[in-house]
């Protein structure tokens, strides 16, 4: 795990709350599957999450990951992003696009 990963994970939890409208997901575990029972990430919430990730970190997960395996859990998504940016989230409005 790189130094930035915990910060990215916290940021992703907030994004997940925003795209699903479910405050209870603000404390979801890093290993909880995003698809299927529990979080139940669907194509709408999933696409909104990927777009937020692209805006904030400049990482286009869908372009790099054909099977979207990065979306298995928030932990795997955080690791995928950390490998590519190494830094924390960009300040609002300053991410590369």
């Amino acid at each position: 795990m790189t130094g930035a990963e915990p910060a990215i994970l916290d940021d992703l939890r907030q994004l997940l709350v925003t795209v699903t409208g479910r405050p209870d997901l603000g404390s979801v575990a890093a290993q909880t599957p995003l698809f299927g029972a529990g979080v139940g990430l669907d194509s709408l919430a999933g696409t909104m999450l990927l777009r937020q990730v692209q805006r904030r970190y400049g990482v286009d997960v869908a372009a790099e990951d054909l099977n979207l395996d990065a979306l298995e859990t928030l932990g795997s998504l955080a690791a995928f992003i950390a490998e590519r940016v190494g830094e924390g989230p960009w300040p609002e409005g300053q991410g590369p696009c």
């Binding site: 698809f35 669907d42 999933g46 696409t47 990927l50 869908a62 054909l66 979207l68 979306l71």
Partner: peptide, 14 residues
């Protein structure tokens, strides 16, 4: 991408 997300959620992989 929304279609690919639905396929992934249904356990389908390429």
């Amino acid at each position: 991408v929304p279609m690919r997300l639905a396929l992934a959620a249904a356990g389908m992989r390429a």
